[in-house]
Every structure is written in C-alpha cells, then in structure tokens.
Design a protein around this nucleic acid. Structure first.
Lengths: 145, 145
DNA sequence: AAAGTAAGGGATAAAAAACTCTTTTATTTA
DNA sequence: TAAATAAAAGAGTTTTTTATCCCTTACTTT
C-alpha cells in the first residue's frame, strides 16, 4: 500500500495542478476533484494543507483557484509525501520496532533498508513538474476513466 | 509504512514461534506477546487467523500452544503477508488508480513496478524458518527492549 | 470424572483515517 | 460598495484499523 489514501490524492492533485497551471491558469477545486477522481471536500482539505506548507499556491475570489509556481514545481514528490504523512515512509523499521538499528537490527533490517532507499530515491528524483509532458502527450494518466 | 500493524505483529510472531518451536516445544500466547512486544489479545486474534490459514499450528490444553511444523517453516513471509493483508501489497497502482495498466499507466507506473517487484522478491525469498540462526546467535532481534 | 490449562470465537471499544458539511474570509468585478 | 466567487477554517460523521474482554471448546493431568 505504501501511501495513505490522502497521500495518493495529494500526489495526483499536485501533478494535475502542475499540468493545468503550466500557463499560469488557476484551477478550481471542482475541476481538480473531477480531474483526478477524488472526493471534492476531501481533496479540498488536503489542498488546504499543501497550501499552508507552500507546496501549492492559491488565491481566493473570482478567477481564483490553485496553481503551482515555478519554484514549487522544482519540489519533489518526497516533499509532498513528507508534507502529508511526515517522514514515516522514509525512516523507521519495516517490522515496526522502535529501537531497530544497525547495531540491533530486526531480521529484515538490511532488506528493508534497500527497499526504503529505492522508494526514497524515486520520490526525491521526481519533481512535481516532471510529469507535464507525458500527461500532455497522453502517455500517462491520473484519472480513472 | 509498507505493512499494516497487524501484519508487522504477524511477521514478528511467526518468526518468534519458528525460533522457539524449533525443537518441538509449543509456545503460549503470553510468551509470544512478551517475546515480540505486542498486545496479548491482539496477537491472539492474529494467530487465530494464521492458524486457520495453516501458517502456524496450535494445540489446546495444558502444554498446548503455538508451533510451526517443518512444512510451514518453508512457507515465505509473502505467504504471511498475503494471509493477513491479501495481495494488495503486491498488486495495484501506487497512486491508487484502479485501471492503471501498462497501456494506461499512471505517471509513476514503471517506478512503482520495480519497487513492488523488489518487495515481492524480498518477501518471497525469505522463508519463515530462515531467521532462527541469526536470532539464536543474537545477530538480530524482534523485541523492543 | 473433575479440575485446570490453553486456544477459539464472538462481541465490543477506542483510535485513526477517510470523508462530508457549513460557515467564514478574502478577492474580484460590476 | 454590493454581489458573486472561491478558498480557508472548523466542526461533524462514517469507516477501518487496532485493541480488549468474556465465554466456549478442546485437551491434559490427576
């Protein structure tokens, strides 16, 4: 399962907004919700968070909406995940042991270390803006239907 | 987080029982609970499940308890995880899209494919009995304190 | 056969995660 | 400056996960 549902929605939303606001347009919550197949109110709450943490930008009023500025586009999916779920995906023992460490490892310690490392690298290497092209070209999708 | 709490306890319990019952001894629920630092009643429920699914064996009455026979020792951690959480760890889209596929991939599809593959291989290659030695030798631990 | 022991099973409780609704605040534009 | 628009904020509700409790069933030993 790797990500929480909240985190899945967050990543999808961020990628969606990045694509849609590439030209400076702002995207409303209803469009986002429809664009990534997520519950409107739920994604609204999530974006409220991401906005506070300055991963997305927003403006109120007519023609307002969410967007992602040039700087934020350089942020990584790891930043998004951390904003939502904290660092528990990146640190900690795979078997849930609090004092698992190099010197007192759980039986799966080294195996998990490399799995986590792979997840970490993947998410750190992917910036929010990285997906526009492939989405624009119809080579990838973030919507169910 | 990769595993659910239930799954973490299940793996720890199975590894613990395998070690303790290597010589044919049966292990009581209280000893297991203490041995892996988990809530007694909760791990009891989990073992009830694993017992039904024939991943661990049990016997009632005095001198009864849980144990793992030679055949079950050959089962893998993937079997344990599947018994508890089903196959959702091994299949499905990293971003939660139900119809994500090779032909209609989410933006992270191929990255996640290889992460999942690594998890799958790790869990399939580790049998329940594999950890006795390292635990016996004090080279690894499944307890907090 | 009776007493004691240990797991099985079902019901319930508490906490966290997922999701919804309503009101408020900021902004624009007419 | 009033009306309309859209996000922010906050207070629920529902569902799922995690955890507990109690009674039953099976088995052993005396």
């Amino acid at each position: 399962m790797v990500f929480s549902k909240t985190c899945e929605y967050a990543i999808r939303a961020v990628i969606y907004i990045a694509q849609k606001s590439e030209d400076g347009t702002k995207v409303g919550i209803k469009e986002i919700s429809a664009g990534i197949d997520s519950p409107v109110h739920f994604i609204a709450k999530i974006l409220q968070d991401l906005s506070k943490r300055e991963i997305v930008q927003s403006s109120k009023g007519p023609n307002g909406g969410f967007y992602i500025d040039k700087d934020s586009r350089k942020k990584t999916l790891a930043d998004v995940v951390t904003a939502i779920d904290g660092d528990k995906l990146f640190i900690g023992c795979g078997l849930g042991l609090k004092n698992c460490s190099e010197s007192k490892p759980c039986p799966l310690h080294s195996e998990f270390k490399s799995i986590r490392e792979k997840i970490k690298v993947t998410l750190h290497n992917a910036t929010i803006g990285d997906f526009n092209e492939s989405l624009n070209a119809g080579l990838s999708f973030i919507k169910e239907r």
